[in-house]
Nucleic acid binder design. Structure first.
Lengths: 159, 159
DNA sequence: GCGAATTCAATTGCGAACAATTAAATGTGA
DNA sequence: TCACATTTAATTGTTCGCAATTGAATTCGC
């Protein structure tokens, strides 16, 4: 063999960029799954999946809203929300009623049980905080960075 | 009305923590979806979905590996990977062969076409970089923070 | 060696997630 | 007014993602 250097494959920037652990998207993707797995046992006690929990969070802040509104707040479309909301309705946590003013609109409102579940849900965030092994400050700072990234990505999609 | 203060609902820490936009998990979750939507048109040209692209990235680094190996690198289990890998096999990008040494193991290897696709994929990361509207340095720093968070979450799950 | 536990992939069933389409209601412009 | 576009949910079909189970192969304890 003449020289080792001849055998060494040139590592271009493009090669580096294709490495799995260089990808921020994979970092985000795998962290989302990790969160999901941490949330699961907590949410099982509430009888909710994580996306259902997100819908409930949104409704606890403001309910009697169209499906469209929820979709914009959660970045989800009707193809995802319609069946999910039907399951929440079957669980008697929400009511779905068609608006009288505009019959295209379905309004989502909390039931008594849906309201009541909020109290049980209060224990969830602190459990997650503990699992993250971070301070509130660290998490908030990180959250702001991630949201900024998300909003830039969504801005590109809107073009 | 006696006093406004009586009417103001006391905002406890628990209430604050339940706000949708205070949740880092929602930030991560919604950013993952935003990435997915940005990747979609790029990956369509390669004939891959995002999870399939992740599998290919892993295989371009090291192939002839058991399904289990892939699962550990991508944090996915056989319930997700088996059908996904069958689709990649149908697309003739990979081969699935049962190991002769241990017949429980299915080894995943790239085909010629699977290898070749790597060249086409090189254009993807730079497009994502552009869409993120961040510098490489910013993204790498953020990636490291997110990965650290993910690893702490996964550590809790492992207990 | 031999029975029990473990490992590994596949399968089944359910719940997202989204693209594309459909259908109904509403709005708009000539 | 009336054709036409727009808005809004719902539906359909495909692909993840995971829990739970199955079944085959291997390893371990004794």
């Amino acid at each position: 063999m003449d020289s080792m250097t001849i055998m060494v494959r040139k590592q271009t920037a493009a090669d580096q960029a294709l490495r799995l652990d260089n990808q921020i998207c994979f970092a985000v993707y795998s962290t989302a799954h990790a969160f999901n797995r941490v949330y699961k046992p907590l949410l099982d006690r509430l009888g909710l999946t994580y996306p259902q929990y997100l819908v409930m969070l949104a409704l606890w802040e403001r309910d009697d809203v169209p499906v469209k509104d929820l979709g914009e707040r959660l970045f989800l479309d009707s193809g995802t929300l319609t069946p999910l909301l039907k399951r929440l309705e079957a669980a008697e946590l929400i009511r779905r009623t068609r608006s009288t003013e505009d019959e295209r609109v379905v309004l989502i409102a909390l039931t008594q049980q849906g309201q009541a579940l909020r109290e049980k849900a209060k224990a969830v965030p602190q459990s997650i905080l503990a699992a993250s092994d971070c301070t509130v400050g660290e998490l908030l700072a990180m959250k702001d960075e991630i949201v900024a990234l998300r909003d830039r990505l969504n801005a590109v999609l809107g073009e």
